[in-house]
Write a protein that binds this DNA or RNA. Structure first.
Lengths: 256, 256
DNA sequence: GATTGTGAAACAGTTCACAGCT
DNA sequence: AGCTGTGAACTGTTTCACAATC
């Protein structure tokens, strides 16, 4: 069993030794894509999709980087991981880049999503238009409350949680979203995993234990809030004029 | 203007030069807390709070690390950043650790939250019990739809977005949550910033441009989905038996 | 002239491994 | 004997800066 990846940690792929007998063009692009870069590629993709709609056909690393909120060196490095083909002196062809990133992120294939826990958040997720439009159709909804089963939410009828295995198999669910209360999360997770779901997005404030081959991403609102709180506190220290040698209260070093 | 922090990047604090005239006990703890460690401290805090409820009084780094899904060396390093006092041969006193982490995260002070955009997600956030119970009372709700203003959601009446400045000042809002459609997000963000809000949690799939002194965290569901998709794709390559020298399709290096 | 692609340097974060304390 | 705290080694990420290319 392994716990899920936290934010920004872990490695996606290994800096591999390329075997001497690998063909040159494969070896050319044979490198790992850092996890951090994968997350940014998704952001670049969104920005680029917006560009396509505006009829932009070519973009420089500087422009794209600005729109994505990163610096241009990082952008170029990220694109180099996917073996991108820009044109020196000109920039990148927007459409080429879009389809390239889509391919790398596996978006050429549809990924059916199941949402478990149809409370406030589950409702919001079931109705969220951003999923289906981006190749992530919500194919199933589950709840433990028998009063909810059969009732359609966002056009999809809710199934009972006991039917997870059969329904997930039938509808080829590849991503499970856990939006249950924390007490139920681990049990739901275990069921999803035994139903063959290998990717989980967890909104419950719980550290899920899963087998190594299952990928978990978590969205933890309380943690986000507390990180912001930390920054408020840091700022308050600063404002209090309690800064000597760059050391605030508690001996925490802060920005000058 | 600076774009917001992405996941896992950036540094909270600087590895500071401690001035030679700083008192020894301050210098002792004078070190930066990495952003990644701050996020984990929030997780440790949640696990520890659960321990307190179960009546656990002492815990070893090994146990806490297991429950938090990290390894024990990382846990101990994280705790060392906050100058923790464990007892060698024994472990940590749970209550001492809880109050220590709370202080570092600035949770001894209340942080009022304003949610902007009362759609599906906004409703869910307004009703989410996890915020108030953790010291983040939802003090204001805003929407641009005049039909919503005055209507209470989760016990709080919705105000019109034009009143952001006065309402935020009056209710001492320190954290703004953006749950609007993407088109509206930047404008809402600008208004929050001019209302004096310096911490923003953004759910809109947009890269916000903010002044340097404003801290932005983002929760981007599409990006999370696409990261999971990337892992599905990697796995599919693997399963396809298309692995030679650890190189999958597209020349991306994968785990053996 | 402009812009990409990328080694190399710098930096940040994680893990190791063990000294030091209870 | 057991467990923490931490310097040192390592791994991953970002930035620099410039040769290569159009």
């Amino acid at each position: 069993m392994a716990a899920q990846r936290g934010e920004g940690d872990g490695v996606v792929t290994r800096p591999g030794e390329t075997g001497p007998e690998a063909p040159a063009d494969v070896r050319e692009r044979a490198r790992a894509i850092p996890e951090a870069a994968v997350a940014r590629l998704a952001v670049y993709l969104r920005v680029l999709s917006g560009m396509v709609e505006q009829g932009v056909t070519t973009i420089s690393s500087e422009e794209l980087a600005g729109a994505a909120g990163v610096n241009s060196a990082k952008l170029r490095k990220d694109l180099s991981y996917i073996g991108s083909y820009g044109t020196r002196g000109v920039g990148y062809d927007v459409e080429v880049l879009v389809s390239h990133i889509e391919r790398i992120l596996g978006l050429t294939r549809k990924h059916s999503v199941a949402v478990v826990g149809i409370g406030n958040l589950g409702h919001a997720l079931a109705n969220y238009g951003g999923f289906p439009s981006r190749g992530f159709p919500v194919a199933a909804l589950f709840d433990i409350d028998p009063d909810l089963t059969g009732v359609p939410v966002g056009g999809i009828p809710v199934d009972h949680i006991d039917d997870i295995t059969s329904v997930c198999a039938e509808r080829e669910v590849s991503i499970g979203v856990i939006a249950t209360p924390p007490q139920a999360a681990q049990a739901v997770c275990d069921r999803l995993v035994s139903a063959g779901v290998q990717c989980i997005l967890n909104f419950a404030p719980v550290v899920l234990q899963v087998p190594d081959y299952v990928e978990v991403r978590k969205v933890d609102l309380a943690v986000e809030m507390q990180i912001l709180s930390f920054h408020v506190a840091r700022r308050a220290d600063e404002a209090a004029g309690d800064v000597v040698n760059g050391i605030g209260v508690d001996g925490v070093v802060i920005r000058p």
